[in-house]
Amino acid sequence: MVKDGEYVAIFNSIHRVMKAEKLLKEKRFPMLLIPAPRALTSDCGLAIRYAEAERGAVEGALAEADLLPEETYVKQGEAYVRVSG
């Protein structure tokens, strides 16, 4: 589901993740709403996945809309490495 090098943004509520998804879709960023990986905890059970190439644009748009995720991880091999939050 999540490929090596992809980012996973975890939000603290279903409302925030849905708002973030709507915003990113409106801006036509390539991203996907996914079930939060089992290795990561999520109060709402959903996460947003995006590629490293889109990281700056995606996170910039979320910051501008005051929708930064609670935590962000990058997949490296079989592990998820926390990069923010």
Rank of each mutant, 00 (worst) to 15 (best):
E21M: 04
F11D: 02
R55H: 15
L40F: 12
A79D: 13
V74G: 05
P35R: 10
R28L: 11
E54W: 05
A9E: 06
R82P: 01
P30K: 13
E26H: 09
G60W: 12
L46M: 12
A61P: 00
A79L: 07
G60A: 11
A39D: 14
A57E: 13
A51N: 13
A65W: 00
I10E: 10
V74Q: 09
T41F: 14
R38Q: 11
A47I: 02
E71S: 13
G85L: 04
R38A: 13
C44N: 15
F11C: 02
P37C: 10
E21G: 00
P30L: 07
H15E: 09
I48Y: 01
L40N: 10
V83S: 04
A61V: 02
K19R: 12
L68F: 03
Q76K: 15
E70G: 03
K3L: 12
E52K: 15
A51C: 02
K75G: 07
A53H: 07
V81D: 01
P35Y: 06
Y50A: 05
V81W: 05
F11V: 04
D43R: 15
E26R: 15
G85D: 08
G60V: 12
L62R: 06
H15A: 12
Y50S: 05
E26Q: 14
R49D: 03
E78H: 07
M31Y: 00
P37M: 06
F11S: 02
A20G: 01
G56S: 15
G85S: 05
L46H: 06
D66P: 00
A57I: 00
P37A: 07
P37T: 09
S84H: 09
E70M: 13
I34Y: 07
A51D: 14
M31A: 01
Q76C: 05
L23C: 05
L46C: 00
Y73V: 12
A20N: 04
S84V: 03
D43K: 15
G5T: 10
H15R: 09
A9C: 13
F11L: 04
